[in-house]
Design a protein around this nucleic acid. Structure first.
Lengths: 229, 229
DNA sequence: TTTGGCCTGTGACCTGCGTCACAGGCGCGT
DNA sequence: ACGCGCCTGTGACGCAGGTCACAGGCCAAA
């Protein structure tokens, strides 16, 4: 129905990389096929051949790398308005990460050809995509720097803070299991638990089943920086 | 002199992202100011405001992130034909990494404005730069995956192999100190030495002052994969 | 209500790696 | 020739974090 199209069109025009496209191009984009994923459903896996890239209309997509023994760490987690899967479209190589729906999601699937055509036709769009990619390089670099220099405790605190910051709420609570947290950090569930306990006794957070309530952002930030004490 | 210009122009047209530009644009680019750096000279540091991006004409540039206590790890190391410093030009944010001349280098310095103009005017160039960035995301993702899943020994062996592969020689030898190696891995010099010793007694390499001679690539590759034994 | 599965909490144990300390060798500058 | 600094080689030590094992609580399905 057309109200659906309008909603998507509005989403696209407010999402970073697409805002530079003219309205008619957006409405054309909205004709792209939609993909719906249930929780934990896999959209593609590392090594797959790529045919399309995706824009998240709703839900949440986790991009993750698989390790040797069934483990996997989450490289980034995108929400509504996020674009992913462009890498393989741009360089023609197989997917370097896997994409899983961390929450039930619906996506817009954009064919390689139309994406490349958009880039060629709209320099501002090309620059927007370049900006987006630049942001990804920056964030991944940050990831490397964290892994190399920070203790698990610091990274954990940092992750919680940054997740909390995406929620507007004053005392937000994150709905994720400690297992998921561990996955995003490339750490073991047990150790994550240990550090969470420490933060709880420090009064920074409160733990519940599948839930972390942020009580004191400042204390958390202290955890995330101080290697001392 | 004009032969100089020609050489640079040839370099540019053979280097990945510039090959898609018309000749006249290349010769225009060659008018850009040159920068010469001595060994270990610093071009810019993380946090600096950016005004230009750079193309390596000769030499070697290391991009590195600084840690808390004077340590730094090398994110990537580029040689002739490499482009770096675009991130900040694209998104206007300060430099996220520092650039140091790992070997005496001469660079072409390209102003932000002319770079952006090139992108706008030449869609193929834009796509080439997108490809380049995509490759950087891929390589940094690989870095993360290595840090998360692999032992120091594996990463060390992998690094040596990949460095050796850039040399055409059949039994190449890398000219770098164990200190530098450690820096690229985010590890301590002592442990790197230990693993190198192991590889030497296994007959995979031969160590000398500031030099590593590759004797047996297959053995190295085994080191880089096997977590067993 | 019972059962089985997931989530949390905690301990014991092992290992890889950083740190510190030191020793010897090569090379360069004076 | 001499000394000093950088590079390599090695051991002792401590710690962060992975692994394993297990126990208890919540929830949903039968």
């Amino acid at each position: 129905m057309s109200t659906d199209q309008e909603a998507i069109s509005r989403l696209l025009s407010s999402a970073a990389p697409f805002s530079s496209l003219p309205a008619w191009a957006l409405t054309a984009l909205c004709q792209s096929p939609r993909v719906m994923l249930g929780r934990d459903e896999i959209l593609f896996s590392a090594g797959d051949r790529a045919e399309a890239l995706y824009v998240i209309i709703s839900g949440e997509i986790a991009l993750e790398i698989d390790g040797a023994d069934g483990k996997s760490i989450c490289v980034s987690s995108l929400k509504s308005g996020g674009v992913f899967g462009e890498l393989s479209i741009l360089d023609g190589k197989p997917r370097s990460v896997g994409a899983r729906a961390a929450a039930p999601a619906t996506l817009l699937s954009i064919k390689a050809a139309s994406f490349l055509a958009l880039i060629r036709a709209h320099p501002d769009f090309a620059i927007a995509i370049l900006k987006d990619l630049a942001g990804k390089v920056r964030s991944t670099n940050g990831h490397v720097s964290g892994l190399s220099f920070l203790s698990l405790r610091s990274r954990l605190a940092g992750l919680i803070v940054s997740l909390a910051d995406t929620e507007a709420n004053a005392a937000p609570s994150l709905a994720m299991t400690q297992h998921e947290l561990a996955g995003r950090l490339g750490a073991s569930r047990e150790k994550v638990n240990g550090h969470l306990q420490a933060m709880q006794t420090a009064g920074a957070i409160r733990l519940a089943r599948g839930q972390i309530e942020i009580l004191n952002r400042a204390a958390l930030r202290r955890f995330s920086e101080a290697e001392n004490s």
